[in-house]
Design a binder for these strands. Structure first.
Lengths: 217, 217
DNA sequence: AATTGTGAAATTGTTCACAGCA
DNA sequence: TGCTGTGAACAATTTCACAATT
């Protein structure tokens, strides 16, 4: 196995994965520019991190570097892609076709990253049956069957808070393992489900706190 | 000063602020239900955290609790609102009125949270002059003057990666201190600027890694 | 009796610094 | 010589556990 985890007790954190994802983005740029090697400090500069952080992260997954030269772009890129599971397209469903859902349906970066919104669901009968950016909108009542039949594992949740928990329960029961949640609501699920929250209003709380701090400083 | 920082060397991390923001959301619900007191363990349950975490976080900012009873909802809510700077409306500008920018202009949760998009900017002449959800779209060329004149401190950046760094430089030069960045790009700024990234494609990297892990487990 | 606030302990994450390799 | 990989040092964060308080 080429991306064999080294048998040490170093823990792979979600932060390491987040950073790998940044490294991959930089490696993609290097590939475009036909750059053959990149050092940990170059990777660090591109990602606003430190060189030792880069080396630690990469060393969790293997010995990818070449002493004296750095990392071979092509090889490292392939390894990181495999680690992150980006060597194949990623199939997801979208639940909720409001303003945000609509925007996500035409979000070009998803295609670029191999993320395919296979179908969408909504409660609004006027939307059901239509297609946006070639994605069919179905009745939410069909979501459970669809997930089971198509073995979907990932869902984007872009619905109002008040129904978020109930819909989550349905999705998880049907087999969804990962949810990207846009509702401003803490979702409860059993272990074995991964939830990532995109909580736009909350982001501004950092800002207002930060600005107030600096004004009083 | 009611929210006086206690003079201890305990550090207030961005994570504490993120959690305060969750507590506030729960406190808002309590207020609606006319609940008078809430304990650290109730707050913990609502936010998927631990009771000691809740107490530690709150104790960074003051002694808000009452031994034996918990926290007075009304008082704590007011304190946390002040800490987070949510006692006044928050004025922001939007840069980039593509699909995502459009969705943000009609995102109702912003209004609910007191976040006001004061105006928007785009390069596309066909959009300039129009108004969406009562927000005027202006030519990007005017952004620097607008920021200076209106003393804007917070910007939402919803433009393509390739121009993200250049536009960021302009915004920061004009006086912007906080940027909510939707471009899949690591932005470089001098210290004193706070950048928060909403990186939608990257969220899926967690998912595919997680799914692969569980399949091999 | 119940619950806070908080030092101390445990855990997790980051940086340092350098041996070893190409 | 230049750069990786990594143990050890350091720093930050979380959890524990209990005295103090109402």
């Amino acid at each position: 196995m080429s991306t064999a985890l080294k048998s040490k007790k170093n823990k792979i954190s979600q932060n390491s994965i987040a950073r790998l994802s940044l490294y991959l983005r930089e490696l993609n740029l290097c590939e475009l520019e036909h750059k053959k090697f990149i050092s940990s400090s170059e990777l660090a500069r591109a990602t606003n991190l430190t060189d030792s952080q880069v080396r630690k992260d990469l060393s969790l997954f293997g010995n990818f570097g070449v002493s004296g030269s750095g990392y071979a772009v092509g090889k490292l890129r392939a390894e990181v892609k495999t680690i992150l599971g980006k060597d194949k397209p990623i199939d997801v469903i979208l639940v909720g076709v409001g303003n945000l859902g609509l925007a996500l349906l035409s979000y070009l970066d998803f295609q670029r990253e191999g993320i395919r919104i296979r179908t969408a669901f909504d409660v609004d009968e006027r939307k059901v049956g239509r297609a946006i950016s070639n994605v069919q909108i179905r009745n939410i009542a069909e979501v459970e069957n669809y997930i089971k039949k198509e073995k979907m594992k990932i869902a984007i949740l872009a619905i109002p808070s008040h129904s978020a928990q109930q819909v989550t329960d349905t999705l998880v029961k049907a087999g969804i393992k990962c949810i990207l949640n846009f509702a401003p609501k803490v979702l409860k699920t059993a272990n074995g489900t991964l939830i990532r929250n995109v909580d736009l209003s909350r982001e501004f709380d950092f800002f207002t706190y930060f600005i107030r701090q600096n004004n009083n400083a």
